[in-house]
Write a protein that binds this DNA or RNA. Structure first.
Length: 316
DNA sequence: AACACCGCCTGAGCGC
DNA sequence: TGCGCTCAGGCGGTGT
């Protein structure tokens, strides 16, 4: 499920392969996944790949002419570069590029998306890209407590539902919303307006931390996700709550609960994430020690420690 | 204006 | 073995 860490992983793996490469051919196999002109030229044929940029879950490939191919992977989308041409009979490959790298090697890149929740946009210029991105909130890797207060402070929505709003923070999906709320010790159904500044700060720390930690593992592969080289990620082994409904909490050993909030499956620990603020400290909740968050998780299980997550935060 | 909710789409997983 | 059902969810559109 490509969220920010997965898309960033794709961006990095593709960048190492196709940056500077010339697009010899661009071919559309399924027109209705593309918005904007679906011509070879609009899909960067004749251009060199000038840069790959990401905002939230969206990945932009900028060409030397200024044209932009913008990709959203949706639920099941993948963008993979390889030495081989993708099979012509794969009904889920919607666009194919043939590139030549600076060293002269041929590389095939294909956009594949069985469920077609994703898509491809062709844009004329970097300015058009900025225009498309202007409605997105700050990128999840940059999010701060004040950003969240600013976007969501007065909202009556459950905080879990609000975190999925890309106008508030770009790049967070169901997996990392649940993970971050657990790390921050915040109940997912709490209304935004009941959160205090210190809780928003803790939540923004948890979000940046979990997103960064996942990027370091190459993202989360639950079913479909693969990076730009076709490899799966490793963060699924470090999940704390997502997909673990009714299993024991890794912090307190209580039973995790699975509910629906904002139409999304939501897993949380009723003990570690109390539904109202309590003056009683929860011992395994993230806490600050010498400027770093404390350890929450049982290291014997090989799962992430919050201070490991925070380690990557402190040098931001 | 803010928020809730539907429908798009396919494949995996499950019960029988 | 195979069939049919449910579920997964990002996001845009529509309804309240």
């Amino acid at each position: 499920m490509p969220e920010l860490p997965e898309v960033e992983t794709v961006r990095r793996t593709l960048e190492s392969r196709i940056l500077g490469a010339r697009v010899d051919r661009a071919a559309v196999r399924r027109r209705d996944v593309i918005e904007g002109p679906a011509t070879a030229r609009a899909l960067l044929e004749g251009d060199e790949v000038a840069s790959l940029r990401r905002r939230g879950k969206q990945l932009a490939i900028l060409g030397s002419s200024g044209r932009v191919a913008l990709v959203h992977l949706g639920m099941t989308g993948s963008l993979v570069a390889s030495d081989a041409e993708p099979p012509a009979d794969d009904p889920h490959v919607h666009a194919v590029w043939k590139l030549r790298t600076t060293s002269g090697a041929a590389v095939w890149m294909r956009f594949r998306d069985p469920r077609r929740f994703g898509g491809l946009w062709t844009l004329r210029s970097p300015g058009a890209l900025e225009q498309r991105w202007k409605d997105l909130g700050p990128d999840g890797l940059d999010i701060t407590g004040p950003d969240l207060v600013n976007a969501l402070g007065p909202s009556k929505r459950p905080v879990k539902a609000a975190l999925l709003d890309q106008r508030a923070v770009a790049g967070v999906g169901n997996i990392y919303a649940d993970e971050a709320l657990f790390l921050a010790g915040i109940h997912p159904a709490r209304r935004c307006r009941t959160l205090r500044a210190d809780e928003w700060a803790r939540l923004s720390d948890a979000l940046r931390g979990v997103l960064l930690a996942s990027i370091q593992q190459g993202g989360t592969t639950f079913r479909d996700f693969v990076d730009g080289e076709g490899r799966g990620g490793g963060y699924q082994a470090r999940r704390l709550v997502y997909g673990r409904g009714a299993e024991p909490c890794l912090a307190c050993s209580g039973r995790l609960r699975s509910v629906t909030i904002g139409g999304r499956t939501t897993v949380y620990c009723p003990t570690c994430q109390p539904s109202r603020r309590s003056s009683k400290p929860v011992i395994h909740r993230p806490f600050t020690v010498g400027g770093e968050l404390g350890v929450v998780i049982r290291p014997d299980l090989g799962l992430p420690r919050v201070n490991e997550v925070a380690g990557s935060l402190t040098h931001r």
